[in-house]
Nucleic acid binder design. Structure first.
Length: 393
RNA sequence: GGGUCGGUACCGAAGCGGUCAAACGGGGCAGACUGUAAAUCUGCUGGGCUCCGCCCUACGGAGGUUCAAAUCCUUCCCGGCCCA
């Protein structure tokens, strides 16, 4: 019994469920050759083997893919976004439909980002204060205020299995003095987020978990201090944010190493917004359990295909007459049943099936990469797998 | 047959004496994309070089006017429309 459900009487006649969260993560093994880990995340909507890649479905849809396709590809968990769903359709609609799982007909686990990334990506449309973020809607310019607490509340309504705290994702490069102040703000928000989380209940009858997000830009002392203070607050899992924001790849790897050395082994680690297939493998060997990235879906829409034989742009003329399957190395519907020449035709013609098949292929590849990583971690051959992949990545 | 409008780069279409190898679209050829304001954005698209510049060939064909022509004139070819 993973979770204890204790009924109690609240406010006269109304019966509510008091749901206690327990450790949601089981660490199965750690590689002897690197920091790579094999584990399982437990959620009300199912267990998630780690390392895992989470396809991004910002606006309550992984662009171009229906839930049944995602299930066929065996996506274990997908990501959505608090800022976007709060603005549209809005919390009232989300509540009306009984939360995001029901709204989008997705019965597997969901993780929602907090809006912290929009603090970075929509810099021109927001203002920070000690209390939170003032956003000017990118849709209609209207004003909205996000506090650490309101972001928890919105994610309660969304009903994500895993929610993220509001943070400031800092641009790169950033001055030390700025980052110093920024991490104080994000840590203050993290504490407020956790407190509010612990003082509120899930709305939809299943437990939710909350992850903190490590910041500190490229400064070792700030990154390390952040991790220590975040762990002190205590979250169900720990994310690393503020990476892949323009820094050199090697620098990102270094930051990951600083942080995973200090994170507790019995909690999941999530590297936010990363990344390329190579980034995932490097992240795994540095002790990361979870990843998300728009790359497989966005790049699919822009013609870039990830395959077990490498990545390429399907628009390139060399594929015009190519009668090979999209990816004979994968067993997805898209990979097996269509030629590269046909996919090129669809993409060149702006046919929506092209975007769908390309997205399917790329997600299939990313999920395959994680599945193979887990398999090789279990076999003790992950490092060999990683170096094999580096020959074509 | 007469009149009239027009023929511009792969296509469509501006330009109407020099600052034109020729705007702008489209198409094509490449590139970028990392917690999604992205089915978006960027570059190239006559040929050749010793390639931040130079040399060829080019605005239907052939002549001509001019220091200079895609732009003006003559003529021929082709197309649209109108009249016979």
């Amino acid at each position: 019994m993973p979770h204890s459900l204790v009924p109690s009487l609240v406010e006269g006649f109304r019966v509510r469920l008091i749901i206690k969260e327990k450790n949601m993560f089981t660490l199965l093994s750690t590689s002897t050759k690197s920091k790579a880990r094999l584990g399982v995340l437990h959620t009300a909507h199912g267990d998630i083997p780690t390392p895992i890649f989470m396809p991004v479905g910002t606006q309550a849809t992984v662009k171009g893919l229906t839930p049944d396709v995602l299930e066929a590809l065996d996506a274990k968990i997908i990501l959505s976004n608090t800022y976007h769903l709060y603005l549209r359709p809005g919390n009232d609609v989300m509540e009306h439909f009984g939360g995001l799982h029901k709204f989008m007909h997705w019965n597997r686990p969901l993780l929602t980002d907090s809006g912290g990334f929009q603090v970075f990506s929509l810099q021109e449309l927001r203002k920070l204060s000690e209390e939170g973020v003032h956003f000017k809607s990118h849709i209609d310019g209207s004003a909205h205020f996000f506090s650490p607490e309101s972001v928890v509340d919105t994610q309660r309504i969304i009903g994500s299995d895993i929610m993220m705290v509001l943070d400031e994702c800092v641009e790169n490069p950033a001055k030390y003095s700025y980052v110093r102040k920024s991490i104080e703000l994000s840590l203050k928000w993290a504490a407020a987020s956790r407190e509010h989380f612990l003082n509120t209940e899930p709305l939809w009858g299943f437990p939710q978990y909350q992850f903190g997000i490590g910041q500190g830009s490229m400064y070792k002392d700030l990154r390390q201090e952040y991790v220590e203070r975040m762990v002190e607050i205590g979250f169900d899992g720990y994310a690393l944010g503020g990476l892949s924001v323009g820094e050199a790849t090697e620098q990102m790897y270094e930051v990951i190493d600083w942080c995973t050395d200090l994170l507790p082994a019995d909690k999941p680690r999530y590297l936010m917004g990363v990344g390329t297939p190579a980034n995932l493998l490097e992240g795994i060997s540095r002790g990361i359990d979870m990843f998300d990235c728009v790359m497989p879906t966005r790049n699919a829409r822009n013609g870039q295909i990830f395959t077990t034989r490498g990545k390429f742009n399907i628009r390139n003329a060399r594929f015009k007459f190519c009668d090979e399957a999209i990816d004979p190395g994968l067993d997805s519907y898209a990979s097996q049943n269509f030629t590269l020449g046909y996919l090129r035709h669809l993409v060149m013609s702006d046919e929506m099936l092209g975007v769908q098949l390309a997205s399917m292929q790329n997600i299939a590849y990313y999920l395959w990469l994680m599945e193979q990583s887990r398999k090789h971690l279990a076999d003790g051959t992950f490092e060999e797998f990683r170096s094999h992949c580096s020959t074509y990545l």
